[in-house]
Amino acid sequence: MRHGSVTYFDAAGKPFLPEQVPLTEEGRAQASAAGRVFGAEGVRFDRVIVSGLPRTMETATLVLAESAQDPGVIESWPELAEIRGGRLSAIPDAELRAAFTGVFAGAVAEDARFLGGESVGELMDRVHPALDRLLADAGWETVLLVLHGGVNRAILSRALTGQRLFLGGLSQSAGCINAIDVGADDWVVRFTNYSPAAPLQHASRATTMERLYEQYARSRGH
């Protein structure tokens, strides 16, 4: 899953600390809707792994509450935190839109940096070993990962291609569910970006990062 909706900028476009933002009311509703789907389908989790950031922990807790499962099973894996941005104020106006949206379009080069911070290659350097460690553990049948848009893209890209590749155009709506079957020799992607709270996702054509760019740009008078 991706965590539910949060607010990264205030009304004037000033950023909040991304490590601290909680779910919005809409985000809590998205997480609860996902939990009800899991409960209705009888999906039980042997393990639940989050990045440790509040928005993933809160999403997982709501999912487990709605599906009548024990929140005490939640594990925090910090290496699965979202791709890290740099200082927004250091990005020139002419490069701002590309800095927000560039790593989430097409097949992305490993040296591409998110908001002037961490590169796509650096993201995969920490996500792939964590994924390998999880897959090496034969003690689970069904695991729930509640993570982030960029991290989920890294996982899905590997599942779809079998390679070290980052497909930025894989949409990850807030609170969405992805399903992957993993085996010794192959992976099967059952579905991606299913949003129980809004299955058709018709309310907006803008991506998450396009909306965030528009919010932040207000602080620069754009």
Rank of each mutant, 00 (worst) to 15 (best):
G35I: 00
D125S: 08
G27S: 08
E75C: 05
G102S: 15
L62C: 03
T59C: 10
R97S: 04
R44Q: 10
G117A: 04
A98T: 14
E79R: 15
L80R: 11
A34C: 13
L17P: 09
R97A: 06
G116N: 08
V43Y: 05
G42A: 11
Q20Y: 08
D111G: 12
S67L: 05
V108T: 09
A99Q: 03
D46N: 13
T59G: 06
R44F: 08
A60I: 04
G35T: 02
P18Y: 12
G121D: 02
A112Y: 09
G52F: 07
L123T: 04
L62R: 13
T24I: 12
P15L: 06
S119W: 01
G13R: 09
E19K: 13
V48P: 00
L96R: 06
G72I: 02
G102L: 12
A65I: 08
L53W: 08
D70M: 11
A65M: 10
A112D: 11
A109I: 03
K14N: 15
I74P: 01
L88D: 03
R87I: 03
R87T: 05
G35E: 01
I74R: 00
P18V: 09
A90C: 04
S32Y: 05
A65P: 01
E95N: 14
A60M: 03
A81I: 08
D46C: 12
D70H: 11
E66P: 04
A29C: 03
W77K: 08
S119A: 10
R113L: 10
G52C: 05
A90V: 05
A40S: 12
I49Y: 00
P15Q: 05
E19W: 13
T56N: 02
R55M: 08
T61M: 08
E58Y: 08
M124G: 00
A81N: 11
V48Y: 00
G102T: 09
I83N: 02
A98V: 13
S51Q: 06
E66N: 03
Q20M: 11
T101E: 06
V63Q: 01
R28I: 08
R28G: 10
L62H: 01
R47G: 03
L115G: 06
T101C: 09
F38M: 07
G106V: 08
R97H: 14
G116Q: 06
V63H: 01
E41H: 13
Q30R: 03
R97G: 02
G116V: 13
Q20E: 14
R97W: 12
R36M: 07
V37I: 13
W77Q: 13
A29M: 12
R55H: 07
V120M: 12
G27E: 06
S119K: 04
A33M: 04
